[in-house]
């Protein structure tokens, strides 16, 4: 994407409820458009991607989720910490068989649930492996990898595996592995995007998240403002709606002229006032985001539920705003 030159790993985070999985899906489609091959990964065992693309729940194997316009394709992978651990043991120690013994005594549980730094390094390690994987002739297998990541409140910690693991393992193989993961995540190959709504808490979390990421030495990519309401009233009317002076005789007349009963007017004015208050709030939040001075894309609020068709539309809007 021209807004993020050189980035191969796109990490998408955001506060819960902001639609980050949807944005990650749309971003993957946008990146795949025009014949590129993209891997979309999730790490939280929710089956969110399968649901988004309306396919069967994904196992621990990469498979095709959707075709993108112009011959591209989006593949999906649900990274599971247990599988990632067994794969890690196999790759580095040829120890796949020891896995079941470890599992029996709870060592796998330990590594994947109780020692959070361990789990995170396994998850990010798998994503890093996919990002760096190359096929015949040394060409990367995936042109880009998109990660539907943990929420903003946890993202810096999740990605900063080096710091997390350094406390636990100052030397040794896990430490070495963490450093390798960091060499990709903290490099120009990776950008972290934050999804937000134009509401107080998500914007606050976004601002805090940007600071956290930067403090951890990670590169912040873009801000994706989701569920933006269209501006339906002229600017002057917005002010009047807030002040309660919108209900003029001429408005009443115009509405009556198109068959709207006069009795509906007070209710319509209430709705207009609420909309105007909302727009005012949104513009304050938008100004707050603008201070971050980062590439920003806006996605509209869809009045119908997000289906696969809508996802393609959102992808197109991302392309227009970020690749223009």
């Amino acid at each position: 994407m021209t807004a993020f030159p050189g980035v191969r790993l796109h990490v998408v985070s955001g506060k819960g409820g902001t639609g980050k999985t949807t944005v990650a899906g749309a971003l993957a489609l946008a990146l795949a458009t025009g014949g590129r091959k993209v891997l979309l990964t999730e790490v939280e065992d929710r089956g969110g991607l399968a649901q988004l693309f309306d396919t069967a729940r994904m196992g621990y194997a990469e498979h095709r989720l959707a075709a993108a316009p112009g011959g591209g394709e989006v593949n999906g992978l649900a990274v599971d910490p247990e599988q990632a651990l067994l794969e890690y043991l196999e790759t580095f120690y040829k120890l796949r068989r020891a896995g079941s013994a470890l599992k029996r005594i709870g060592a796998v549980d330990f590594a994947t649930t109780v020692a959070p730094g361990m789990r995170d390094v396994l998850l990010t390690g798998k994503v890093m492996e996919a990002t760096r994987r190359s096929g015949p002739g040394g060409r990367p297998v995936y042109d880009a990898v998109v990660l539907d990541a943990p929420p903003t409140g946890r993202i810096a910690r999740f990605l900063n595996v080096n710091a997390e693991v350094a406390g636990l393992a100052k030397v040794g193989p896990i430490h070495g592995h963490a450093q390798q993961v960091m060499s990709v995540i903290a490099s120009p190959l990776t950008a972290v995007h934050l999804v937000t709504l134009l509401e107080e808490m998500p914007v606050q979390e976004t601002v805090d998240g940007v600071a956290d990421l930067r403090a951890a030495g990670l590169r912040v990519g873009g801000i994706f403002v989701n569920m933006v309401r269209p501006a339906l009233l002229p600017a002057k009317a917005l002010v009047a709606a807030r002040n309660g002076t919108l209900g003029t005789e001429s408005l009443a007349k115009t509405l009556e002229g198109v068959g709207v009963p006069a009795g509906a007017l007070p209710g319509l004015l209430v709705e207009a006032r609420e909309h105007a208050e909302r727009v005012q709030l949104e513009s304050a939040e938008r100004a707050e985001l603008a201070r971050l001075d980062l590439p920003t894309a806006e996605l509209p609020l869809l009045s119908e539920a997000v289906d696969v068709g809508a996802l393609y539309q959102l992808a197109e809007q991302l392309r227009e705003q970020l690749i223009a």
């Binding site: 339906l232 002229p234 009317a237 319509l268």
Partner: peptide
């Protein structure tokens, strides 16, 4: 001169949907 009236109606239609 009907932009406001149109906007008010579209707002309501959105809300209903």
């Amino acid at each position: 001169g009907a932009a406001t009236a149109e906007g008010v109606l579209r707002l309501h239609a959105d809300r209903m949907v």
